[in-house]
């Protein structure tokens, strides 16, 4: 029996490894209607505020919309970089979330909108994620990923760290929080209404922890570090070549 279980686990792990980074998007059909509604209700305020901020900024700075669109496209491409997972000897590649980067460049609310659009395109054209699961995916990648990355970056700046380390921390924290969000979304699936609230929450918390450990133990743990380094290098590169971009986007203050 043990051998069967071990065999099943190894096969599944091997199947999941090469593409596991896209496990950050909960796929279509997984969520029951009550959770679909719950997650959409939760993220709608963030998307609405993000859209209003975009609209307001568009009136003041006419070129802001093309800028958001192009930075959004750049972050989308960035999120497709095939980063080799260290420790697996090049066996697998994983893909960064990219929301940390967009939050640092455009602010967390606009980043939520960008994440929502990227998730919509990925759901339709890559079959990663889904339309009924768009709410939970925006929550994990857009809301948790963007806000955690943004505040981690600002906190690191306040601590007087160099730009590379600020970007590194933003990348690591946003990636970790994105996976935490996905684990919460999936863990809540085992929540049963007929159990008492505390028992149901205990069950869900156990499932969340297990899912998070599976993500981290496969490729996402090393990926967090890799994404942090890539974001750090990317921001340092922009600062070295065209610092005015970072000043204009108010990522750093002009000296």
């Amino acid at each position: 029996m043990k051998k069967i279980l071990l065999g099943i686990s190894i096969v599944i792990a091997l199947l999941l490894l090469p593409h596991v980074a896209y496990a950050m998007h909960i796929t279509e059909g997984i969520l029951p209607p009550k959770w679909v509604i719950f997650w959409f209700v939760l993220v709608i305020p963030f998307v609405v505020i993000g859209t209003f901020r975009l609209k307001k900024k568009k009136k003041v700075v006419p070129g802001f919309l093309p800028l958001v669109g192009l930075v959004g496209a750049a972050v989308f491409v960035f999120s497709c970089f095939p980063i080799p997972v260290i420790g697996l000897n090049g066996m697998a590649t994983a893909h960064p979330a990219g929301t940390g980067m967009s939050a640092v460049l455009l602010g967390p609310f606009v980043s939520v909108v960008i994440a929502g659009i990227a998730l919509f395109i990925q759901a339709l054209f890559l079959a990663h994620g889904g339309l009924t699961t768009l709410g939970v995916n925006i929550f994990s990648m857009g809301v948790l990923g963007s806000f955690s990355g943004y505040f981690a970056f600002r906190l690191a700046q306040r601590m007087g760290l160099k730009l590379f380390w600020c970007g590194f921390i933003a990348g690591v924290v946003s990636d970790l929080c994105t996976y935490m969000g996905t684990s919460i979304g999936l863990g809540l699936l085992v929540f049963e209404g007929d159990e008492s609230f505390s028992v149901a929450m205990m069950h869900s918390a156990k499932a969340m922890l297990e899912i998070f450990v599976v993500f981290m133990a496969t490729s996402q743990g090393p990926l967090c570090i890799a994404e942090g380094i890539v974001v750090g290098f990317a921001l340092s590169y922009v600062y070295k070549v065209r610092p005015s971009i970072l000043y204009n986007l108010r990522v750093i203050k002009e000296q």
Partner: peptide, 19 residues
């Protein structure tokens, strides 16, 4: 990782110039 970093940086610069 370093190459991806400069690639990411270059992407930001290109996207903003193009915008």
């Amino acid at each position: 990782i370093k190459s991806f970093g400069s690639l990411g940086g270059m992407l930001i610069i290109r996207s903003i110039t193009r915008a």
